[in-house]
């Protein structure tokens, strides 16, 4: 009986693997997009954590570049304290930010941001955002890293995957019907992306002296956005280790008890 189950299980596995293999082949054949290369991230793996220094630099990139168009509406300024920044450091980071509110007379006003405020949105609503960006609103980035397949690699790929018009082959220009005003991105589905290249070498000047290469900026902002997408990740992994250790011990005990209970029946 046991042998039958094992061999049958192998048969099932083989059949399924065959089907998946055929499937995988058709998929690679049908997709023209390049997959962004896998990079190592500090937050990967069962014990990975966010690199705080990188995430702080990433916030600087977001604040100085991305935030002109992209909102981060699920975050509040108080959340920045989770990146090992003190209350006063966060307050000085946001001291020039004005957020919309209603005055005592009920009229709209702008006032300095508080820690409890959500991140300032670049556009008051999606319609305004779309109107200001050729009809397509720049997406919110709060959970962007979780909202794409292989999110960290994908976002890094998009940020670094632009090909300037003069570097494109005539075939590419023809195939994708490109003009000088279009943006070609290796990793964007369909390649024609509305967003102009947002980052470049020395686009920001890092306070900690890190050299601001394009790759560095992209990696840092991905680290920051990964944290923004899943701020409780470290807590989750820590809890997970404890839970699994407990369950392993409990399983061991239960197995011993079960064996003893059954000792006279075998």
């Amino acid at each position: 009986m046991r042998k039958t189950i094992v061999s049958a299980a192998i048969a099932v596995a083989a059949l399924t693997a065959g089907a998946v293999a055929i499937a995988a082949e058709t998929v690679t054949a049908s997709e023209s997009e390049q997959k962004p290369p896998h990079r190592h991230w500090h937050f990967e793996g069962p014990f990975g954590t966010y690199d705080r220094a990188a995430a702080q630099r990433g916030y600087q990139v977001y604040a100085e570049v991305c935030s002109a168009c992209h909102s981060l509406q699920l975050l509040a300024y108080r959340n920045l304290m989770e990146l090992d920044l003190t209350e006063n450091q966060v307050k000085s980071l946001i001291k020039d930010i004005q957020v919309p509110d209603l005055g005592d007379d009920g009229q709209p006003i702008e006032r300095p941001a508080r820690l409890s405020d959500s991140f300032r949105k670049p556009f008051a609503n999606p319609a305004i955002a779309a109107a200001a960006n050729n009809g397509k609103a720049p997406p919110d980035l709060s959970v962007m890293i979780k909202a794409r397949e292989d999110g960290p690699d994908y976002v890094h790929g998009i940020l670094t995957g632009y090909v300037p018009f003069d570097k494109l082959t005539p075939e590419q220009i023809k195939e994708f019907n490109l003009t000088k005003d279009d943006n070609f991105n290796k990793y964007y589905p369909g390649h024609r992306i509305a967003m102009p290249p947002p980052l470049a070498d020395d686009k920001v000047t890092y306070a900690d002296g890190t050299k601001a290469t394009l790759d560095q900026e992209a990696s840092d902002v991905v680290e920051f956005l990964a944290w923004a997408s899943e701020p409780k990740m470290e807590d989750r992994k820590r809890t997970g280790v404890r839970v699994i250790l407990f369950l392993l011990a409990m399983a061991g005990l239960m197995y011993a008890v079960k064996r003893q209970v059954w000792a006279d029946k075998h």
């Binding site: 989750r236 992994k237 997970g240 699994i244 369950l247 392993l248 399983a251 239960m254």
Partner: peptide, 14 residues
């Protein structure tokens, strides 16, 4: 159940 929960926790937490 404990063995099942270990696999479940593996997914839920990691």
């Amino acid at each position: 159940l404990m063995v099942f929960l270990i696999i479940y926790a593996g997914f839920a937490f990691f």
